[in-house]
């Protein structure tokens, strides 16, 4: 009889999800300000939005600790062999960089420092996006987690969910701008810039997101094959696709999170959606991708935990 204690749970899944959104939005903002030609509304909103999801994730991480009063020690004592120690460094730097960058973008301060911060945001955005998966992949004796493709999968999902959350916020960009303006004294307020996304920008984002969804489907199938090729494959697949969390995986991740949004996105871009459905798609597609992105993390985290009791015995 094995009594089951989950060491990590939904709080870690929320953290992996929110860090992914921040990473995706941060990378979009950084690329927007490094390379010319990106839509002004998109790169502005991405820069404003990037710092906040990861802050929620950090709160979840601290809540998940069993000795939360000691959490600052992870920022003082470093262990170069620990993936988590590197991650703590990335998670310390990214919110600071992206907050500074957002403030500079908001007040239209354009100088060398902002260009430097854009590069920093790109580097640390990629770092926290990849770290989310490496944290799990570094646990080398777990059949579900110890796979480098997890890092790749989480990173692509991070870009996809980041873009989708921007699509959702872009619908209310001006209202959010008005809300922020209430807290800023009149004389400091920058001039108003229209932030609401229009149909054309929205359709472009749908195409980009469709590319990421296709990539994600490819990586998921590669991941499942690479599970199956290992001696522990039966255990890993048993936790994710044939037993354990298989319903969440097939219905939540593959169907609601990837396939249906992909079909809806392609139909919307092709102009095949008319009438009432046309009002639903613009918010339904990104919402479904976000739900799928969270469930993907949830399934992987819990799937890795339920295979552990089997491992205590000899192979």
């Amino acid at each position: 009889m094995v009594e089951h204690h989950f060491t990590w749970g939904y709080l870690i899944a929320i953290y992996l999800f929110t860090a992914g959104i921040s990473s995706g939005a941060g990378i979009v903002a950084a690329i927007g300000y490094i390379v010319n030609g990106m839509d002004e509304r998109l790169k502005r909103l991405a820069a404003y939005f990037a710092p906040f999801p990861v802050l929620i994730g950090l709160a979840c991480l601290i809540l998940d600790l069993h000795r939360p009063w000691n959490f600052y020690k992870v920022l003082i004592y470093y262990n170069p062999t620990s993936v988590m120690s590197w991650g703590a460094f990335f998670l310390l730097v990214f919110p600071l960089v992206s907050l500074a960058f957002a403030v500079m973008v908001y007040f239209n301060i354009d100088n060398k420092l902002r260009r430097f911060l854009a590069w920093m945001e790109l580097v640390f955005g990629i770092a926290i996006g990849v770290y989310a998966g490496l944290l799990l992949a570094a646990i080398y004796n777990n059949p579900v987690w110890s796979n480098p493709l997890i890092a790749f999968l989480f990173f692509i999902s991070a870009l996809s969910t980041g873009i989708c959350s921007l699509m959702l916020i872009g619908r209310k960009g001006d209202k959010l701008d008005d809300l922020v303006r209430r807290f800023i004294p009149q004389k400091w307020q920058p001039e108003k810039i229209k932030l609401d996304f229009d149909k054309k920008l929205f359709l472009r984002l749908l195409i980009v997101d469709a590319v990421f969804i296709v990539l994600e489907l490819m990586v998921i199938s590669t991941l499942l094959i690479s599970y199956a090729l290992r001696p522990t494959g039966e255990i890993a697949l048993g936790a994710i696709i044939t037993g354990g969390y298989y319903l969440l995986f097939w219905i939540g991740v593959v169907l609601i999170g990837l396939t249906i949004p992909l079909i809806l996105g392609i139909m919307e871009v092709g102009g095949r959606i008319k009438g009432r459905l046309g009002h639903i798609v613009p918010w339904a597609e990104p919402t479904m991708v976000l739900i799928g992105g969270f469930l993907l993390r949830y399934v992987i985290v819990y799937g890795g935990e339920i295979v552990y009791p089997i491992l205590t015995l000899y192979p």
């Binding site: 060491t7 998940d64 069993h66 000795r67 000691n70 959490f71 992870v74 646990i139 552990y308 205590t312």
Partner: peptide, 19 residues
Amino acid sequence: LCIGCGYCVLACPYRVRIM
């Protein structure tokens, strides 16, 4: 020094740590 993150509990291949 311990922050109670549980990473060692998961990293142990023998699964002997208890939180």
